[in-house]
Computed example of a mutant assay.
Amino acid sequence: MLLPRILTALIGIPVVLAAIHFGGVIYMAFVGAVILLCLYEYGLVLTAGKKPVHMPSLLLFGLLMAVVAILGRAPADMVDLPDNLYPFSVSVVIFGVLFFEVLTPKRSWDRVCNTFTGVFLIPWSLAHLVNLRDIATYGEYLTLFMIITVWVCDTGAYFSGRFLGRHKLNKEVSPKKTWEGAVGGTVLAVGAAVLMRHLFLSTLFSVSEAVWLGLLVAVVGQVSDLAESVIKRSTGVKDSSNLLPGHGGFLDRFDSYLLLAPLFYYVVLYTL
């Protein structure tokens, strides 16, 4: 499994870094494609586990939430948007999902709940990757800071757990993850955060703030990973798909950002 994992990373990492660097429409299209693929894989996971989900509503209203998350923070002089954009959009999603369910011959409240979870969890969260990149002056560097810290944490956790792992983190949810892996990944993530602060963010925050941000990324990213594992284990599915050899699917690869991306964005926005 290690060789496919490395080969996929060698191809995927330059693509992600290039999209972040170019930003704008290119990065927005990249994140939009990731959101669509993650929504689709979420639907596949639930379907494989015989959990009902309304795929058209999932994709349609999921994209709506992603667009709203991005447009909602655009400067007023760029986009003429109503002040009540968020509540209006949430109302549209609630009405739309329930409306389509009422029209479905075999109605299911479980399908409504599963569809709502996908619509609000995946696109709303991942759209904040675009918001973070669009922060004036430092957007590219902050995005690199968060994403590379997650990569280092994942890699550190993988190898620490493989060679040092003895105590299971939560064998019911993720049987291969260990406390040793989690701690090893966190330590390396903090080191990477401090290093990146010295390389391109020294004017924005201090070393101690870099340590706290590194801890935030490592801890929340790993919790987010476990949250996605709860969805998969509840359906008996190991990977969201096999689109990324050695890594599973796009939802497996971007699961760390489901809880992390919005939190990191708002922490940066309101504290730095």
Rank of each mutant, 00 (worst) to 15 (best):
V217I: 15
V119F: 04
L39I: 06
A127R: 07
F100E: 12
A193G: 12
F22G: 00
F264M: 01
V130E: 03
S224W: 02
L58I: 10
V112T: 03
L103N: 06
L258Y: 10
E209S: 14
E140M: 13
T117Q: 10
F254G: 02
I122M: 09
V194I: 15
S241D: 08
S125L: 07
P14N: 08
D154K: 06
T143N: 04
L226R: 07
F200E: 09
H54F: 13
A227G: 09
G221Y: 01
Y266K: 04
S224H: 03
D255Y: 09
A29M: 13
F99M: 13
N114P: 03
Y86W: 15
W212T: 09
R133I: 00
T117A: 14
T137I: 14
Y27K: 02
G191W: 03
D225K: 04
L37S: 12
Y27W: 13
C153I: 02
P123W: 05
M78T: 15
V194M: 12
V219N: 04
V237I: 13
F116I: 08
P82Q: 08
C38I: 06
K176R: 12
D239V: 09
D255H: 09
A218P: 04
P75E: 12
K177P: 04
L3C: 03
F116T: 05
A192R: 00
V194S: 05
L213T: 05
Y270F: 15
L142A: 00
N84V: 09
G248K: 06
V25F: 14
H128Y: 15
S206G: 07
V267M: 06
V97Y: 00
A193V: 11
G32L: 11
K176M: 10
V230Q: 11
L260D: 02
G249A: 08
S160H: 05
G214Q: 08
R166K: 15
H247L: 09
R5P: 01
V230P: 06
K168T: 13
V223F: 12
C38E: 09
T271N: 12
I148Y: 02
V112G: 00
M65T: 14
K238Q: 11
